[in-house]
C-alpha cells in the first residue's frame, strides 16, 4: 500500500512538473513567434509588396500621374525589341564580368601575398580594405576629376612617367568604360580580398608544410593547394561581385552619367533614365524585372557550380 502511494505521488509530481514545463515552453514559443514577426512583416511591407507593385507596373502603362493602366506584355515586347536595351544589357554584362574577374583575380593575389602571415599583414589587411569603406560616389567624383586630361592627377602621374598627360578617356565613347571599370575594381577589391583571405586562413598550415617537404615551389603551392581549396569562396565572390557590379549605380553615375552618349549606360542607369527622365515608368519596371531575373539565374547557376565542386574537392 505504502509503495503504491509513493508511486502515485511521484507520478503526479512528475506529471505536474512536465505540465508546467510544457506550459512555459508554449508561452516561450508564443513570445518567440511574436518577437520574430515584426522584422518579417517590415521586410514584406518594404521589399515584398513594392517588388510586387514593381512587377504589376511592368505590365502597365504609367507616366507618373493617375492610375497605372494594365497593358499586358507590351512593355516586355518593347524592352526586348529595343536596341537600346540590348546594347545596354551587353554593356552591363561586359562591365560586370570584366570588373568582377579583374577584382577577384587581384584580390586572390593580394590575399595569397599575406595569407602566410607575412610581416605587417595586419597593416595591409586594414589599408587594403580602405577603398571599400569610402563612399562610392565620393571616390568616383575624385577619380573622374583625376582622369581629366592635363589637370587630373592620373594624367599628371602618366605625364611624369613619360606616357603623356593628355588622355581624355572619359570623353571618348570607345574608352570611357575603362576608367569606370578601374574605379569599380579599386573600390570593390577590398571586400573580395577579405573574403578570400578568410578562406585561405582556414587551410591547415600542415598541408603547406607537407608540400614544402616534397619540394613544391610557392607558385606550385598556390596553384595546387590554395586555389583548389578556396574555389567555393572564389566562385561565390565572383558571383557576388558580378551581381553587385551589374546592379551598381553610384560609380557609373558619378563618373559619366552613362555618357558620352550612351557609351557607359549600364542597365541601372538606363532604367533610371527611362523612369525619371522620360517618365516611362512601366517600361522601366519591365527592364528592372528582366535584369533581376537574369541576375537571379546567374546567382543560382553559380551557387550550384560552387556546391558540386565543393563536394568533389573534399
Amino acid at each position: 500500500m505504502a509503495t503504491i502511494h509513493t508511486t502515485v505521488k511521484a507520478t503526479t509530481t512528475t506529471r505536474s512538473g512536465a505540465f508546467q514545463r510544457r506550459r512555459s515552453m508554449t508561452s516561450s514559443r508564443i513570445v518567440a513567434w511574436c518577437a520574430i514577426a515584426p522584422a518579417a512583416i517590415a521586410l514584406i511591407l518594404v521589399v515584398g509588396y513594392p517588388a510586387l507593385d514593381g512587377l504589376r507596373l511592368s505590365f502597365s502603362s504609367w507616366v507618373g500621374l493617375g492610375e497605372p493602366e494594365w497593358i499586358g506584355f507590351d512593355n516586355y515586347v518593347q524592352a526586348i525589341g529595343s536596341s537600346e536595351m540590348r546594347t545596354s544589357l551587353l554593356l552591363t554584362m561586359a562591365y560586370a564580368v570584366g570588373s568582377a574577374v579583374i577584382m577577384v583575380a587581384l584580390a586572390t593575389l593580394l590575399a595569397a601575398a599575406i595569407s602566410g602571415g607575412a610581416r605587417g599583414s595586419a597593416f595591409y589587411r586594414v589599408v587594403w580594405f580602405l577603398p571599400g569603406v569610402a563612399p562610392a560616389t565620393a571616390v568616383a567624383v575624385f577619380w573622374s576629376a583625376s582622369f581629366q586630361p592635363g589637370t587630373g592627377s592620373v594624367n599628371a602621374v602618366l605625364g611624369a612617367l613619360g606616357l603623356g598627360n593628355d588622355h581624355a578617356w572619359l570623353a571618348s565613347q570607345q574608352t570611357a568604360i575603362y576608367p569606370v571599370i578601374g574605379v569599380t575594381v579599386w573600390s570593390g577589391a577590398g571586400f573580395a580580398f577579405l573574403l578570400l583571405l578568410g578562406a585561405m586562413e582556414q587551410i591547415p598550415v600542415s598541408v603547406f608544410e607537407a608540400a614544402s617537404i616534397d619540394g613544391a615551389s610557392s607558385a606550385r603551392k598556390f596553384f595546387s593547394i590554395t586555389l583548389p581549396l578556396v574555389r567555393p569562396v572564389l566562385v561565390i565572390c565572383l558571383m557576388l561581385e558580378i551581381i553587385w557590379a551589374a546592379n551598381g549605380f553610384s560609380v557609373v553615375y558619378a563618373m559619366t552619367q552613362g555618357g558620352p552618349g550612351t557609351a557607359t549606360e549600364t542597365l541601372p542607369l538606363l532604367i533610371y533614365k527611362q523612369a525619371f527622365s522620360l517618365s516611362n515608368y512601366g517600361l522601366a519596371s519591365a527592364m528592372a524585372v528582366i535584369s533581376g531575373v537574369i541576375l537571379i539565374v546567374i546567382g543560382l547557376v553559380s551557387l550550384r557550380f560552387s556546391r558540386s565542386r565543393q563536394g568533389a574537392s573534399w
Partner: peptide
C-alpha cells in the same frame, strides 16, 4: 530563407514603387 530572398530583389525594381509610395 525569407531574408535571403529579400536580398535578391534588385533596387532598380523597388525604385519606382518607393517613389510612388
Amino acid at each position: 530563407g525569407i531574408f535571403v530572398a529579400g536580398t535578391v530583389v534588385p533596387f532598380v525594381l523597388l525604385l519606382v514603387p518607393y517613389y510612388r509610395l
